[in-house]
């Protein structure tokens, strides 16, 4: 009972006052370590990172360090690779998200019914989430290998491509390699989140609908979807941001190639920082990515607000 505890605080006499002080401070003792660590390891570097984007900090050119104003951003504006990366980020994010979501929803609906061996099934289909990303990326790179990988041979067998060739080396198609790997890896996440939401729907609603003679589709569209909608909006928003920031898969599978055709903003940040050691420019790209994501989140939140109101 939270309200009961609040009444213990008249604060008049001294003993009570020290108790009150402890009562005020106690929460911070518990949350303090988390705050300190996040402040030191995430927030402080974040501010530092934003300041880097206005400086020239390239480890390979140690004598040209200093504040340069908006020079990095001006260079970014002129950078063709940056604009390609924006388009690629959109394709990467939408492509991954679309399939992850629908396959995840299907899986969640399936797991919300009962069948024999369901617990084993659940453990097995969630397994891709546990596979370390770099391993997923390496395995899929192997599966796409034109000589020894099965995918090109299957596609050729189906007549979709003329002969097994290196799809990851084709600038038009290469992005779909990492996207497929990302779909595989991301379906369990959506399934788990949506399953949790599904299980929170009171079963009385379904029983009542059953009695009233509602069809399966009616039950899905009138009960399940409205209940899931708020969860879906939030999950999709968070996941979009997460996927857009997720560079591992692309870095390992294609390294951004061929000819920058799979370079997304976040992998561009990483290669600029890691390979070129140009921290100033990398930070400018990162800030641009942050602004794009912020704009996206704001738009989505406004739309959601409007939808809730009407």
């Amino acid at each position: 009972m939270r309200s009961a505890r609040k009444n213990v605080v008249p604060g008049a006499d001294r003993a009570r006052r020290s108790f009150y002080l402890r009562y005020l401070l106690e929460p911070y003792l518990y949350v303090g370590p988390a705050l300190v660590l996040i402040g030191a390891v995430i927030l402080f570097p974040l501010i530092l990172g934003i300041s880097y984007s206005f400086q020239s900090i390239a480890l390979l050119k140690p004598f040209e360090t200093g504040w340069v104003g908006f020079e990095n951003y001006a260079a970014l504006w002129q950078d063709d690779k940056f604009w390609t990366a924006i388009g690629n980020t959109a394709l990467w994010t939408c492509g991954s998200l679309f399939f992850q979501f629908f396959l995840g929803l299907g899986l969640a609906l399936l797991l919300n019914t009962s069948f024999r061996g369901k617990r084993l099934f659940q453990a097995l289909v969630f397994l891709p989430w546990a596979v370390p990303t770099f391993l997923t990326a390496l395995t899929f790179a192997w599966l796409f290998n034109p000589v020894i990988g099965p995918f090109p041979h299957w596609l050729a067998g189906l007549g979709l491509i003329d002969e097994p060739y290196n799809i990851l080396g084709d600038p038009d198609l290469a992005m779909w390699g990492p996207i497929l790997a990302n779909i595989w890896f991301g379906v369990p996440f959506f399934a788990i989140t949506l399953l949790a939401a599904l299980q929170s729907i009171p079963s009385e609603l379904y029983e009542a609908a059953e009695i009233d003679g509602a069809s399966d589709w009616q039950r899905f569209s009138k009960i399940t979807l409205p209940f899931l909608a708020p969860m879906i909006v939030i999950t999709v928003m968070l996941r979009t941001i997460w996927i857009a920031n997720f560079a591992d898969m692309i870095y390992v599978m294609t390294g951004g190639g061929p000819a920058g055709s799979t370079e997304i903003l976040s992998s561009y940040v990483f290669t600029t920082a890691f390979r070129k050691l140009d921290f100033g420019y990398a930070s400018a790209i990162a800030v641009a990515l942050l602004l794009i994501l912020l704009a996206y989140a704001l738009i989505l939140l406004v739309v959601r607000q409007k939808l809730v109101r009407t």
């Binding site: 390891v41 995430i42 402080f44 570097p45 974040l46 530092l48 990172g49 880097y52 900090i57 968070l238 941001i241 857009a244 920031n245 560079a247 976040s266 940040v269 990483f270 920082a273 890691f274 921290f279 990398a282 930070s283 990162a286 800030v287 990515l289 942050l290 994501l293 989140a297």
Partner: peptide, 14 residues
């Protein structure tokens, strides 16, 4: 929400 890669350079420097 923000790109963690954003702090990869500062973290390296620190």
């Amino acid at each position: 929400m923000f790109p963690l890669l954003m702090i990869i350079a500062p973290i390296y420097k620190i």
